[in-house]
């Protein structure tokens, strides 16, 4: 556990030091998204990487969190600090209720059911115009503040978002290293065997589904208050797939992998901007190459690559 804590502290220090280097640049803004995406990827990874259950509808939970606190604060004048837990409990409760029937399904069928769930939420964001503003979006969402300190610049928001992301990282690291983490991996590997050991597999799956929805909702709240404007397009099917890609590219069943996947998929489009219209082709090709040569994700693939390179150099010197 001690080694894990040192690893985490090193990670946190590295993250919190970046504004010193990048302060004021456009990249600061991108790093906000890396933080939010990391949180989302961690949430989805709990479900997909640990419990082995797919979801193609997580963008819906993200959107629901964003809209709930957006509406409560912009339309009804609530304090964001109250809206956030309320949104998270509503989303968690909803996920719990949805989870019971649909997590009975497996594989492709579960993918279809969660896909449907995401699409329904997307339609609701679009059609309940009186509440959400519909396709033209919801604006005027206030920034989060503590006393007189308002989180209204990229730099301030960076610390706000990343303290949540790092907190979430620590929490999930603890969870996955615990008895519950072991039970999740057991359910992933063989549900029958897990059941006959007394693990209530069904309840556990639903609980983890709800937890990952809560994490997505909190990310949604932070997103809404950082952007101060939200519209349905950010919460559609495409984004659910992007989240899934982050988790797989980063490494299933690894919390730090989720960070790597989120960082890569968020930063890559920025760096490929120079390639203009070809960026999407390069992006797609890179993903294919990575899945082919790093099936364990970046978190396992990159160290492997280094080891191979070192070996080659060693062989040449000998």
């Amino acid at each position: 556990m001690n080694r894990d804590l040192i690893k985490f502290l090193a990670f946190a220090t590295l993250i919190l030091a970046t504004p010193q280097v990048l302060s004021g640049s456009y990249l600061m803004n991108v790093l906000l998204f890396v933080g939010i995406h990391t949180m989302l990827a961690i949430g989805l990874n709990l479900l997909l990487g640990y419990a082995g259950q797919i979801s193609l509808g997580h963008a819906g939970f993200f959107g629901l969190g964003a809209y709930l606190s957006g509406i409560l604060t912009a339309t009804y004048g609530w304090n964001p600090w109250l809206a956030m837990p309320l949104a998270a409990s509503v989303v968690g409760g909803l996920a719990f209720l949805i989870g019971f029937p649909i997590l009975k399904l497996k594989g492709h069928y579960l993918a279809m059911a969660t896909l449907g769930m995401g699409i329904i939420m997307y339609i609701i964001f679009n059609e309940t115009i009186g509440l959400t503003g519909g396709p033209s979006g919801l604006s005027g969402i206030p920034a989060i503040s503590i006393g007189s300190l308002a989180f209204d610049s990229d730099q301030k928001n960076f610390y706000l978002i990343w303290s949540f992301t790092l907190g979430m990282t620590l929490l999930t690291l603890n969870l996955t290293n615990s008895r519950i983490g072991r039970a999740l991996r057991a359910v992933h590997d063989s549900e029958v065997a897990a059941q006959v050991l007394g693990i209530n597999a069904r309840l556990l799956k639903v609980q983890i589904f709800a937890l990952s929805a809560v994490i997505s909702s909190i990310a949604g709240t932070l997103y809404a208050h950082t952007m101060t404007f939200i519209s349905p397009t950010s919460f559609g099917f495409n984004f659910s797939v992007e989240l899934l890609t982050m988790v797989v590219i980063g490494g299933l069943g690894s919390i730090y992998g989720s960070f790597l996947g989120a960082a890569l998929l968020t930063l890559l489009p920025e760096f490929l901007r120079g390639a203009q219209d070809y960026d999407i082709i390069i992006y797609g090709a890179l993903l294919m190459v990575m899945v082919k040569y790093m099936p364990g994700g970046l978190v396992r693939g990159v160290p492997d690559l280094f080891r191979k390179l070192l070996k080659k150099r060693g062989a040449r010197h000998a």
Binding site: R179, R182, A183, A186, A194, L197, G198
Partner: peptide, 9 residues
């Protein structure tokens, strides 16, 4: 350890 899951609980 997983065999003792319920005992831990």
């Amino acid at each position: 350890d997983l065999g003792a899951y319920l005992r831990y609980i």
